[in-house]
Amino acid sequence: MQYVADLNAAKTTGAAIEIDRVSHVYAGPEGGVPALSNVSMKVGAGRFIVIVGPSGCGKTSLLMMMAGLRDHTEGRIDVHGAPMPKPDPERVGVIFQEASLFPWLTTFDNIEFPLSLRGMSKDERRRKSQPMLQLVGLTGFGERYPHELSGGMKQRVSIARGLVQDPPVLLMDEPFAALDEQTRMTMGHELLRIWETTNKTVVFITHSLTEAVYLADEVYVMSPRPGRMIDHIMVDLPRPRTYEMMATDTFGRMRDRIWQQIRKSH
């Protein structure tokens, strides 16, 4: 109930996530390690946001903070109008890399894990996980264990697990990094299809500039550590995106712009 109200709040202010001058310093053996410096961003509800930046610039840290999994030193992060002092699966679903499935659980049980934490009955859980399995295109694989699935399939399970509680916001930290190039493209395409049918707000981190432009409504570019936002690019390619768009000039120009920003900042 509470998050329905929050959803409405998001509609009125237009922001699903609001990050206001966030800085973070990790405690280290020789004083602090500054990881983020004065980061601000405003993510509209239902938007697909991609964050790119060099390794170690604080992308994961920022995402963990949005998920309520890590504290920040300074600034404010609101998700649907309220801060995230601890994880709230009703507001935010996190999708990790493929290795994060529990190997001792079947596909069904992995997807239902978040529901089982809340003591939901087995029948009810299955009623919710079945459509998720179908959504990610894995009907018939419910009783398999992760080691019986390919990398791409595991990632589909992981997405289904992140969606099963129907949170309005999905956070994804380099979810396809471990996949081969082809699977990665297919998964990106699949993700867009799922996103278009579910109306989620997505924040997606990647190293791949092509992936960034292909997926995003908006791309944020971060500087090397301590991470700052150095560019914000609107990707105004039409939806649904097609593979052919990658060959267009517009696509190439946007990818170049991101690349220049990253190069300049070193």
Binding site: L69, P87, D88, P89, V94, F102, P114, L117, Q165
Partner: peptide, 23 residues
């Protein structure tokens, strides 16, 4: 990673012990 996943879904410390550590 497993612990992080469980935490992100709101697992309590006791649930993490029983549902992640033990299995």
């Amino acid at each position: 990673d497993y612990i992080l996943v469980a935490r992100s879904f709101g697992a309590t410390p006791l649930q993490i012990l029983r549902r992640v550590y033990v299995p």
